[in-house]
Design a protein around this nucleic acid. Sequence first.
DNA 1: TTAACCTCCGTATCATGATACGGTGTCAAG
DNA 2: CTTGACACCGTATCATGATACGGAGGTTAA
Lengths: 137, 137
Amino acid sequence: MQPLKIGQAAREAGIGVETIRFYERKGLVPQPPRPRDGGARDYGGDTLWRLKFISGAKKLGFSLAEIAELLELRTAPNAGCGEMQTKARAKRNDIQARIEGLVRMRNVLDELIATCPGHGEIRQCSIVDAIEGNGTN
Amino acid sequence: MQPLKIGQAAREAGIGVETIRFYERKGLVPQPPRPRDGGARDYGGDTLWRLKFISGAKKLGFSLAEIAELLELRTAPNAGCGEMQTKARAKRNDIQARIEGLVRMRNVLDELIATCPGHGEIRQCSIVDAIEGNGTN
DNA sequence: TTAACCTCCGTATCATGATACGGTGTCAAG
DNA sequence: CTTGACACCGTATCATGATACGGAGGTTAA
């Protein structure tokens, strides 16, 4: 199996080459070893998997720090599944809270959209007034 | 009516004084004129309204750039309610997509937590596959 | 063999959204 | 009349998440 080069991996993960190097510097993915023959590094296998994982988690709104934690859930020493379970639970609650915040946001927007007539002058737009009220809370 | 000073306005809008100045530099709010008598600027009226609007819109997940557009809509001569509604809808769909991703993530984590025996290797945990799948899309 | 296109690496720069710092001025209470 | 709390202003710094640049070298295909 010939090496998956960084450009290839970038395309597969839907990110940029520079971004991969950035993740390496951040320690989110290990930099694959350079082959003895001096060719390009191999970004396939686990490295590609991690890149895809990061890309996916980012789309869900996780920060790189959080993604690092998620990755640790898996990378951790085989010994204790219990500790991992605890971490997973904490992360689940994190996510649940985030969902609830977003649902509230969505509901407010739904209400605004429903109330707005959708035509006429902006002066009478109920959305504008409602957003202002939202700031005071 | 005596002038609403910047500190007062900041408290009313629920933001910091430095943040107001930052918004001024960004052009999101005009800097109120300094009175001829040399006292403090008046951050009441429309300025306060804008600060509250910004604060409220931020809570709904709008970026400052988006908020600038929303504010312009209001100032525009023949701006309609329709445009405002369109933007609100777009943001709503944005948020909805994020919610759906997070719900998937939460469900996978729930499954992991339920399936995990509490001991042994974490490698078989399925949490990660779902996230990875999300990255490829 | 020469152009096009990569890899590799260090360093620099950018965008976003603030927050902090330092100095000056003003005002009001004690 | 001094102390303290602000206002005002320019500039600096921060965190996060990238993206760009420059130059050396490798690979490939016309």
